[in-house]
């Protein structure tokens, strides 16, 4: 078993990874404005996550506020202003962003590790603060959070607003 995530990664690194993902997928001129960590405001919206299984076990979770998910989808899919993103589009874009964030976070952790297939839903409950690294950020005024949280048999905490 590996050390808790806070001994392996810090918020600055996660922010840097997320920034790269954002400029490659969302747009070159699109910036994530980092905000707060664990104590940052909860995000009310859907989540997408991937599991990481290896020396460190846990989830990489992306949560974005409801209006933000639609905007994000339109940007990633380069939709015209009059095009509406379907629920399926939103789900797919969130899953892929979580997948890429997860893969890049995994590369910073002790390996070898296996990445699971992405899932979506309400933000999964998490473990103790010691095994959680959360970056709250904003993009075009929308709130979002990237949380790297250790797997636990009895997850009890949630920072985000339950759906």
């Amino acid at each position: 078993m590996s050390a808790p995530i806070t001994h392996l990664l810090d918020g600055e690194t996660v922010t840097a990874v997320a920034g790269e993902v954002w400029s490659a997928l969302v747009g070159e001129e699109e910036y994530l404005v980092p905000g707060y960590g664990l104590d940052g405001p909860p995000v009310a919206g859907p989540s997408a996550w991937v599991t990481v299984t290896g020396p460190w076990n846990g989830l990489v979770v992306l949560t974005c506020d409801q209006a933000g998910t639609a905007d994000l989808t339109r940007s990633v899919l380069q939709m015209r202003a009059d095009e509406e993103a379907t629920e399926e589009d939103v789900d797919d874009v969130l899953r892929e962003l979580a997948n890429i964030l997860g893969g890049n976070v995994k590369s910073l952790l002790p390996g070898p590790s296996v990445l699971g297939l992405p899932e979506t839903g309400a933000a999964p409950l998490r473990a103790s603060d010691e095994d959680t690294c959360r970056v709250a950020a904003s993009w075009r005024g929308h709130h979002l959070a990237i949380t790297i949280q250790g797997a636990t048999e009895a997850p009890v905490f949630t920072t985000e607003v339950p759906l």
Binding site: N99, I100, G103, N104, K106, G111, P112, S113, L115
Partner: peptide, 9 residues
């Protein structure tokens, strides 16, 4: 074209 970036993979 993948997120798998470990050398072994």
């Amino acid at each position: 074209v993948t997120t798998e970036s470990e050398h072994g993979q």
